[in-house]
Simulated scan of single mutants.
Amino acid sequence: MLGWRLLVSVILIPLLFGLFYLDQRAGTSAPYLYGLCCLIVFRGCWELTRLLTVRNLQPGYAIVSLLSLLICTLAWLPYFSDSDAGSAQESSLALMSVGFSISILLIFLKGAIRFQEPGQSMENMGAEILSVSYLGFLLAILAELRWVAGPETGYLALGSLIISAKMGDIGGYTFGRLWGKKKLVPRLSPGKTWVGGFGAIFGAAIGSLLWFQFTPALFNSLWTGSSWLWAILFGAIIGLVGLVGDLCESLIKRDVGKKDSAELLPGFGGLLDLLDSPLYAGPVAFVLWKLLPLITVVAATGN
């Protein structure tokens, strides 16, 4: 199983970065990334609403997917129309928040219109708000990393999160399988161990260090990576937060009595099982890119 997980990761990550390469060449509006986010919304909302259809929970797939798509689309509008990346991101974050607020209002309105008798409306509304928050708002924040460091070099930031989070997953799984004994949270995730948790942080830190050492110049010839200290700190934080994200997705699955969100890939589960760490770590990565000196601009020298 370990070999299979590594093989799938080796295949999926280059495919994802190939899409990023095409999107980089398509311009600052990132149309390919927007299309990918739309696919994630429709597939992810299907998995999540299907997971949550248990007990008294009956979230509506149509409203959850459409509202999640609304949040992502509103977040993208400034990038389709505004050439100033700085002001575009400010407008994007504002519109994203407005879209999330409107989504809550519409979910309440739907609940009020369909109310028949006590005992079910609040459960359904809570499940729908949770779904929109998870697959609409968090996904939109994750996508904002595309522009956090500027329109030309944004995939350096998005790539740093993906590499750190996925290397954390690989490190955690590898360390846990080889040396893990003491369970981390046995009731929530029986497979997680303390050694695996340290492996997740270690793997993410190594992935981040390598990413910031070797890739900045590929995005901008005047950029070099930050010092090893900041790169390792970024990766370690993402590894820790990604591990928490994995546990939080396990919380959803365990509470509804499921092992995987779906059967998309053997050994990985569904799309939500692949995205749990990046989705949860996205807002933290955005803040870290704003606070830490993760890149260095090399002054151009004249002749």
Rank of each mutant, 00 (worst) to 15 (best):
V284L: 04
Q213A: 13
L52H: 11
I201D: 02
G154H: 01
W230M: 11
F175T: 01
C38T: 08
F137C: 01
A217D: 09
L243W: 05
Y280W: 12
F80P: 00
S68T: 04
I238P: 02
L272K: 05
A299T: 15
L69K: 00
G172Y: 06
A200Q: 04
P278D: 09
D260Q: 11
K253I: 00
L106P: 08
G136C: 11
S221A: 15
L135P: 12
S208N: 10
G197M: 10
V298A: 13
A281F: 04
V54I: 12
V298E: 14
W230D: 08
G235Q: 02
A85D: 09
S208L: 03
I170M: 07
S91F: 04
L93Q: 00
P283R: 07
L274T: 06
A285P: 10
K183T: 12
S131H: 06
E249H: 13
V298M: 12
G197V: 02
F202R: 03
E47D: 10
A231K: 06
F234V: 07
D246G: 15
T301F: 00
A88G: 13
T215S: 11
R50C: 08
V41N: 12
P118M: 09
G119P: 13
L209A: 14
W211N: 02
P266L: 05
S221W: 00
F108Y: 08
K110G: 05
G126R: 08
A127F: 00
K182P: 10
F115Q: 02
S250W: 01
L218V: 02
D246I: 01
I102C: 07
A30I: 00
S133A: 14
V185E: 05
I163T: 09
L22D: 09
P190D: 07
L6Q: 08
V10Q: 15
V8M: 02
W211E: 03
L70T: 14
G172P: 07
G172W: 03
Y34M: 04
L210T: 03
I206W: 00
S226T: 15
A94R: 08
S189M: 07
V284W: 02
G239C: 11
D255H: 10
G171N: 10
I129E: 00
V298H: 13
K259T: 13
I206R: 01
I163L: 09
L210S: 04
W211S: 03
G242M: 06
L22F: 15
L36S: 05
A300N: 09
L271N: 05
T301W: 00
T28R: 10
R50E: 14
K166F: 03
L233D: 03
A204L: 06
